[in-house]
Design a protein around this nucleic acid. Structure first.
Lengths: 219, 219
DNA sequence: TAGATTGTTAATCGATTAACAATC
DNA sequence: TAGATTGTTAATCGATTAACAATC
């Protein structure tokens, strides 16, 4: 029986995974939880906890064998390529189509859709742009599982419904709205303004506490 | 004394805030925690908890007055415009410069920097591109507080150090690397591949549990 | 008044950290 | 062996949820 690994653990493991790739390329053979902690900014206990949810990989006194740890993560994280489709080929959509980081991670954008006829038929970084009406058919044919919403706010809910009808199981949503979808469809919101504003709050709060009477360690 | 509001609360409040703007525009006068819950997908208890950290705004039996709630959030969240600078005017950087959602939220990109001479001097969506060497001077002159890293992985650590030297207090990092910066500089990582992969994990896990013997409610 | 909805407390849940026995 | 580092347990911390008294 597969133990279920929490979402937070997953996202940390993906960071470890990248570091291990670098380490392997540099010819490094072993790595300790303390080193991984140093390189990611997490605690060493956190690293060991995360790793241990994948089994007993390390050895006391030795640490982890880079190749072993790499293999453990690869196995559980991504076996085969994920097929993704993009909705909305505007500025952001085009940039996503040209994003260089997906190939190495087995993420492949297999088609793009737009409502604007002038964009349909184009090809960007090897990905063809289709009319949005073709989405349901193509999603099935290309076995896509995840959809990206890079359309404007006003179009987003309708596009989300198209995605659900097409059978996509997950949505990466770049529009700053809450999409209304069935509970079995997963949504990840990437909301630029919220990131900026929450970062700004951190800055302001740190300013206050630093200037204030109460002393606090910088996180 | 200002109670410190957690980062998670902040990001939810920003969602409420947008809904309130829409509601106000539609002429809606009152709104309940249950309605806000429905529109955001959070629980009603969560909504009330979040709101209560800003004081007693609502009234039993009545709910919240839209205008009042709006005002409370505005006051604590953003008083004045935040000045932001962008590093790296490639595909992603250009798309960010053209992102339409910032203006309404009092986020202004005041300058962009690139190492590539062919990009320097251009203007994108009203924002001038400067040589990266000019960053320290311009950051101070334009009173920028936050920097965006949209440069490739290989350049990112060096760019981060430039940002720190320039006096920026926060970094929105789009590169899939851990930036090494002093503890008093805040970093928000927006990592596309990690979002995809962790979403994919959710999908796979849901598939397993749904097909398996153990029954679980869809989240 | 009766009914509905807030504000808040207490209970629950989950995630992180500390600590240390196991062990190579 | 002595020393170092894992795996894991228990303690802590924080965030969410449930529940209900206050109250308009």
């Amino acid at each position: 029986m597969k133990k279920s690994v929490s979402q937070k653990t997953i996202s940390r493991v993906l960071r470890y995974s990248r570091i291990l790739n670098d380490a392997a390329r540099d010819g490094k053979l072993r790595i300790s939880s303390a080193e991984l902690a140093e390189l990611t900014g997490f605690s060493d206990a956190q690293v060991r906890k995360d790793v241990s949810s994948f089994g007993k990989v390390g050895r006391p006194r030795i640490g982890y064998i880079v190749a072993d740890l790499k293999k453990v993560f690869e196995g559980l994280v991504l076996q085969s390529t994920v097929h993704v489709v993009l909705f909305g080929v505007g500025n952001l959509g085009s940039a996503i189509l040209r994003y260089p980081g997906f190939d190495q991670e087995k993420i492949r954008i297999v088609a793009a859709f737009d409502r604007d006829k002038s964009r349909v038929g184009r090809e960007i970084n090897g990905v063809r742009v289709y009319d949005i009406a073709e989405a349901p058919g193509l999603v099935k044919r290309l076995r896509a599982q995840i959809g990206i919403n890079a359309t404007p706010v006003v179009a987003s809910q309708e596009v989300a419904e198209t995605m659900v009808r097409a059978g996509l199981q997950g949505i990466i949503n770049f529009a700053p709205v809450t999409l209304n979808v069935p509970a079995d469809v997963f949504v990840r919101n990437i909301d630029f303004t919220i990131e900026f504003l929450s970062l700004f709050c951190d800055i302001q709060n740190s300013g206050k506490t630093a200037a204030g009477s109460r002393h606090r360690k910088a996180a």
